[in-house]
Every structure is written in structure tokens, then in C-alpha cells.
């Protein structure tokens, strides 16, 4: 049997098609970098308001007084809204450049796969805040965000799965040692986002 009617190329193109059919092409690495910058900005701001001039790594979250706590929550929400808005805007821009519809089959599936862990986490964190369990808020953010990334990674790019695992590990560490929870939050949402965003930007956006 020597004839091979182009099956080798067919199989390779089928593999690409399979990936493309689940992958959200309009994903932008740049949004990761910017989300990281916002998170670090928020963390720095929180540090100067609450802890300065104390050392930045350990913060006894349970000793934070209510007015500062409200401020901390507002900062976190601003970072969240800015990150999501940037992500949506850059995705829409990239979709336009690629000539695809941002809200297509893969976009919808990505949104659902992200939303299930994120909405669960959001409600859980709200209950923690209402119950006064502040020490677990930052670790819970990391854990549920990590789970969302792992869950949605087939719709994004393979590297996102590893980012998800890193966030989960940081979250579990923070839950074990609550005093470094806010510091780990800054590492997970700030530093890791900038590193991964840069790698993905160079690999997929350029």
C-alpha cells in the first residue's frame, strides 16, 4: 500500500479545525497584562492606605477596621470592573481585526464556562464578607478564579490551564496562612497576569 491520498495533510488540518472550533480566537494577551497592572495598582494603593509604613508581606486581615475594609472592597471592585471592561474591549477590537463575530459560538461557551465558577465564587465571597470571615476573601478570589481558568482553558489557549493551577495553589497557600493572603492576591492577580499576558501577547497577538 503505497498510495496515501493526501490523508496526512487532511488529518493535520482536521486537528487544526477541531481546535479552532472550540477556541475563542478574539482572546487578547494584552488584556492579561493590563489586568495585572490594575491589580498591582490596586494592591499598592491598598498597601499605602492600610499598612504603610509597615512591611507589605504580612497583613493581619482580621485586624483591619470597617472603614478601611469598605475601602478595600471598593478598590477590589474597581480593579474587577476595569479588568473585565478592558478584556471585553480588547476582545471586540481583535474580533474586528480578525473579521469574526466576538459573540459567536466559542465566545458564548467561554462566557458560560468562566461564569459558573466565577458567579459561585462571587456569591461565596459575598457570604464570607457578610459573615465577617475577611481572612478568606483574598484566597477565595484566587481559588475560584483559578477554577474558572482551568474550566475555560479549552476555549482559550493551553497556557491558561497552568495559570489557573498557579492561582489555585496561591489561593490554598493564602487560606493556610491568612496573613499573607493579600500579598498572594497581588502576586496571583498582578504579577502572574503580567507574566502570562506578556507570553501570550508575544505568542498569539503579535
Amino acid at each position: 500500500m503505497n498510495s496515501n491520498p493526501g490523508f496526512e495533510q487532511d488529518l493535520a488540518s482536521i486537528r487544526r479545525l477541531m481546535e479552532r472550533s472550540v477556541r475563542f480566537l478574539s482572546f487578547s494577551g494584552l488584556s492579561g497584562i493590563l489586568a495585572g497592572v490594575y491589580a498591582l495598582g490596586g494592591a499598592a494603593w491598598a498597601y499605602y492606605r492600610i499598612q504603610y509604613p509597615g512591611q507589605p508581606f504580612r497583613i493581619a486581615v482580621d485586624s483591619i477596621r470597617p472603614p478601611q475594609l469598605t475601602e478595600l472592597i471598593v478598590v477590589a471592585l474597581v480593579v474587577l470592573v476595569a479588568s473585565v471592561t478592558t478584556g471585553l474591549w480588547l476582545s471586540a477590537r481583535k474580533a474586528k481585526r480578525l473579521g469574526v463575530n466576538v459573540w459567536d459560538e466559542t465566545g458564548r461557551r467561554l462566557a458560560i464556562n468562566l461564569a459558573v465558577p466565577l458567579v459561585t465564587g462571587g456569591i461565596f465571597i459575598l457570604l464570607l464578607v457578610l459573615g465577617g470571615q475577611f481572612g478568606l476573601v483574598a484566597p477565595a478570589c484566587l481559588i475560584f478564579y483559578g477554577l474558572a481558568l482551568v474550566n475555560a482553558s479549552p476555549n482559550l489557549v493551553d497556557e491558561i490551564r497552568f495559570l489557573g493551577f498557579c492561582e489555585i495553589i496561591l489561593g490554598l497557600l493564602g487560606a493556610a496562612v491568612p496573613d499573607i493572603g493579600l500579598f498572594l492576591w497581588a502576586v496571583g492577580f498582578g504579577v502572574l497576569h503580567i507574566i502570562y499576558g506578556s507570553v501570550l501577547y508575544r505568542k498569539y497577538d503579535a
Binding site: D10, I14, L17, M18, E19, R20, S21, V22, V100, N101, D104, E105, T106, R109
Partner: peptide, 25 residues
């Protein structure tokens, strides 16, 4: 037939797919 094969490949990789998504892809 390559189009039929490609349709089936997309359906195998996804829980379901709609007509316009398939057409674009």
C-alpha cells in the same frame, strides 16, 4: 467527502454547534 468529514469533526469536539457558527468555521 471532506465537508461532511469536517462537519463531523466539529461536532465531535463540541457538545453542539449551530448552523451559522458552522458556516463561518
Amino acid at each position: 467527502h471532506s465537508i461532511r468529514l469536517r462537519i463531523m469533526v466539529v461536532l465531535a469536539a463540541n457538545p453542539s454547534y449551530d448552523y451559522s457558527g458552522m458556516k463561518d468555521l
